[in-house]
Nucleic acid binder design. Structure first.
Lengths: 227, 227
DNA sequence: CGATTATCTATGATCGATCATAGATCAGTG
DNA sequence: CACTGATCTATGATCGATCATAGATAATCG
């Protein structure tokens, strides 16, 4: 019998197991359920290449490896499916998706369409107040490693989406899982996307002067990331 | 308070053989799992107003009413959350979302952005072959009741998205659950969206002559649905 | 009495076990 | 030997029960 009463089970249960993910700084002391933790483990495993494309993902095996039951693993797998990291067939389980270059490229037109819309909405609401955007430019400039660069660059784009004030738009954009896919793109080809940072400044200036062409600017900027 | 207990039971199993809700016509004889059936029951219940906005959705109660266990109900609820039909808080359950007019309006800019992108991609691939689009115009013209009208109108838009050839775009657009939200909009205000059908013809003509401005046309057309 | 703390209750989250299906393996038949 | 069908196996889907948390209720204290 396992000790379920242990207060604040920060990590997956059962006899010393798994790395303690979120014990450190965090504004709200996020207590996350097993499903969320498992999801992160699986995302890391797939993006890092620990599981090969096409490899079968067996619910019970993952559950046993992590010392949990099948249920939260299933829950996590559904999230991975929504992120399109795995493919599932009814009654036949899931396997790691084999991302083609085309798969990786498809995200850019979608982002472009969503972010153009977001920018057109945001320029109205921001009324020239671009401080929040500038923060991410500064941080991006100060970034040291490529992974940090990526996160700050994405944060800039997320800020535009947030500024649109359209919660559905935010939700849809978030659900694209840009971080994950960008990480996969970077792994696929060499590390780039560096030079595009200057365009963030141009875009921010356009927001500052309330340039109604900013939507198109963002659209073209996003598409310029595409291979 | 409305009587929930009497409702369904037409399909969900238990001991006996599952009554095969869809044993008849259907190209591929889709056998759907409990989760899918439950999802549909819940969607119908919410869109029809059987469950009031803000009303609590208790997993075990639904499970008992349908004669199934908690697991497939949970699975269905997660889909409803993705459709934004319910709101969920960790460890505190789900309740029917109270859709504001703003909620209903938010979908149009998102659709406009996605469908503009889709149209710009589709016009390249279609090369003037607009037969698939015309089918939906014809069907819409032949539609009798408003519900059928809605479905054919949406089918036209879906066709554009399909024609883009971008599977991610299709997936994202589908996940918006346009049918459900449109049904809610129609329920909220009176039945309209009728006059807009002619614009479908204009758009189709633009596709036929490979007019590169078709993206903007579709964008404006979608936004014209917004209240 | 009002505030604080210790139950109690409802219910989401998780568990371990079972059912059902898709494939694989084996057996029989012409 | 190819083919059909029975049997076995792996595993997803579902179940019933238990654990853990949030909110309600009762008990305690100043």
């Amino acid at each position: 019998m396992i000790d379920h009463r242990s207060v604040m089970r920060t990590v997956l249960p059962r006899r010393g197991r798994l790395p303690l993910s979120n014990m450190n700084a965090s504004p709200a002391l996020v207590r996350t359920g097993l499903g969320d933790q498992i999801r992160q483990v699986l995302i890391d495993g797939i993006t890092s290449g620990r599981w090969a494309p096409g490899e079968r993902i067996v619910e019970r095996r993952i559950a046993a490896e992590l010392g949990v039951s099948q249920a939260p693993v299933r829950e996590a797998l559904r999230h991975l499916e929504a992120l399109r990291l795995i493919e599932t067939l009814p009654n036949r389980g899931a396997r790691v998706r084999d991302f083609t270059d085309e798969d990786l490229a498809e995200v850019f037109p979608v982002r472009a369409g969503l972010e153009e819309t977001a920018a057109d909405l945001a320029v109205q609401r921001l009324e020239g107040r671009v401080e929040a955007l500038e923060v991410h430019i500064t941080r991006l400039a100060a970034a040291t490693d490529p992974d940090e660069e990526m996160r700050h660059s994405i944060a800039f784009h997320r800020e535009i989406v947030e500024a649109s004030g359209n919660r559905l738009l935010r939700s849809v954009w978030q659900s694209l899982g840009i971080e994950v896919w960008t990480a996969l793109s970077l792994r696929r080809r060499g590390t780039e996307l560096c030079g595009k940072a200057v365009e963030h400044t141009d875009i921010t200036e356009a927001f500052r002067r309330r340039d109604l062409g900013v939507g198109r600017m963002v659209h073209d900027h996003v598409m310029s990331y595409a291979p």
